[in-house]
Amino acid sequence: MKKDILKHRLVPEHTILSKSEIKKVMKELDIHPEQLPKIKQDDPICKAIEAKSGDVLKITRKSHTAGKFVTYRLVLN
């Protein structure tokens, strides 16, 4: 039986950023993508949303301190 991990309450929302969005975020943070935290391409979430190496994921998750928190990860293989 296969579960849809995207529906699990502990899996935060992951979205793949477009080229222009990546550019914007990189400018905001003043970094190049290699300086982002990483995530493996074979991570279940990457498989589920079909993220490829080089993509940048925007992760929106619940936070104890801030309520909602946005962070980014670079997909690697």
Binding site: L29, D30, I31, E34, Q35, L36, P37, S63, H64, T65, A66, F69, V70, T71, Y72
Partner: peptide
């Protein structure tokens, strides 16, 4: 100064300190 937490190579650990900058 921008509120990010980074290591000595400038790699981001948290995009905002403690997720709320407090």
């Amino acid at each position: 100064p921008d509120g990010t937490v980074r290591d000595n190579r400038g790699v981001i650990i948290q995009t905002m300190y403690g997720e709320d900058k407090v």
